[in-house]
Design a protein around this nucleic acid. Sequence first.
DNA 1: CGTCGGGTTGATAACTTTCAAATTTCGTGG
DNA 2: CCACGAAATTTGAAAGTTATCAACCCGACG
Lengths: 242, 242
Amino acid sequence: MALQTPFARKLAAFVALSDDEISALDKLHGRRKAFPAGRDIVHQGQVNSSAYILAKGWVCSYKVLMGGTRQIVDFQIPGDFLGLRSVLFRTADHNIEPVTKVEASEVMVEDLLDTFRKTPRLATAVLWAASRDEAMVVEHLVGIGRRDAKERTAHFLLELGARLKLVGLGSISGYDCPLSQYLLSDALGMSAVHVNRVLRELREDGLVTFQQGRVEIHDLAGLLKLADFDMAYLDHDGPLLK
Amino acid sequence: MALQTPFARKLAAFVALSDDEISALDKLHGRRKAFPAGRDIVHQGQVNSSAYILAKGWVCSYKVLMGGTRQIVDFQIPGDFLGLRSVLFRTADHNIEPVTKVEASEVMVEDLLDTFRKTPRLATAVLWAASRDEAMVVEHLVGIGRRDAKERTAHFLLELGARLKLVGLGSISGYDCPLSQYLLSDALGMSAVHVNRVLRELREDGLVTFQQGRVEIHDLAGLLKLADFDMAYLDHDGPLLK
DNA sequence: CGTCGGGTTGATAACTTTCAAATTTCGTGG
DNA sequence: CCACGAAATTTGAAAGTTATCAACCCGACG
């Protein structure tokens, strides 16, 4: 059977999926829902929220702090799973906000747990996918903790490019990117003003441009070097579970 | 059957474990190994490393950057699972270093995957545990991105206390902590000198002291307020999977 | 047209790092 | 049990990075 969904394609990187497993995955996709940009799909503290598999558009997951500032933990692009933690914990520990108009398939908790029960290998596969997400968060953490603003921004743009390329939404030379500098600043842990300056520096260095919703990578080698980028954490070779 | 190991106790928070499941978990504990402080148990890039369940002592997981600096992603304490990502990815994406002398049970990949196959609910339980770990990394990320040095340090000390309390290694008023200021600085994403100053400030404010390997919380309310600490992400009420 | 969100820039303030040096703590061998 | 050296902590001063505040520009949109 062909791999129908981007989600199935992603899991197939880890487990060699049987026909049964693929169709179990496809059945997981519940009602397709659309969300406008800007209004939260899930908010911190919400109980019994659903999970989603993102089909179209971009969303971000973030947490807000006392002072009203927020930290964006990650952006999700088509094929990504949303809100796994929210359902496993019953109450959501973060917010999910569409960056653009979004379409996503709802995944009901019961269906998910049920699928794990009937098709145990899929539980392992989802564990793997969750670990991959965790690896991205870890890399993000490392960047914020130990890279300066310029390296961090460069790294971010490279990682986004690599992820988009994996789902066929961009190439090594550039990609469309709907993120504002405010969104970027909340993700990179810096002020929007500083994001602006750093982007200008990167542009003046002839490394990347990010203008009018488009990222163009002009000097990949230079950017990779500046960012100390290693995509090992995104790239795994062949299924571990046969 | 009684819950034998701290690891089983942790998972029991999510799934109501049957006797079979508990004994499957206990069998997961392979050979008990001892490690001296300071020498890496797993290093970045290592292939086919094992996973471990920590029995005694503290370890840290970290990544090193080009410039030689490092970022500590998390500390693990007894009952924590080590190196899950390393085994699922086949090649380790981070280092694991004992902070103190350590004892840990080795977990073989095959045994782990085997257990998931035979006892599918345990796969879900481990997924839950991994999500909980991810939630901690996320909170860490938020702290580094959006909290200033003082808030971040306060938050860190509180989180550590809460975790230690869960495994019976500390109380609300204080705990033993083998971390040096260098370790702290690598975890908090700041310089060791600044860690020292911040600890002094916290001490002078009458909030906490951290001296001679012992953290004493003198003003819990004040500290909670300063750190904007919310332990929801550590604390879940009763098993979700019956 | 006028407004509004996003982008851009300069000036200043705040926070954090770095460098250097003194002091204390701690493990180990005598 | 004490002395010694290494490691960890502490403090000051100077430099560097990033945030904040304030303006101005621009294009989309009603």
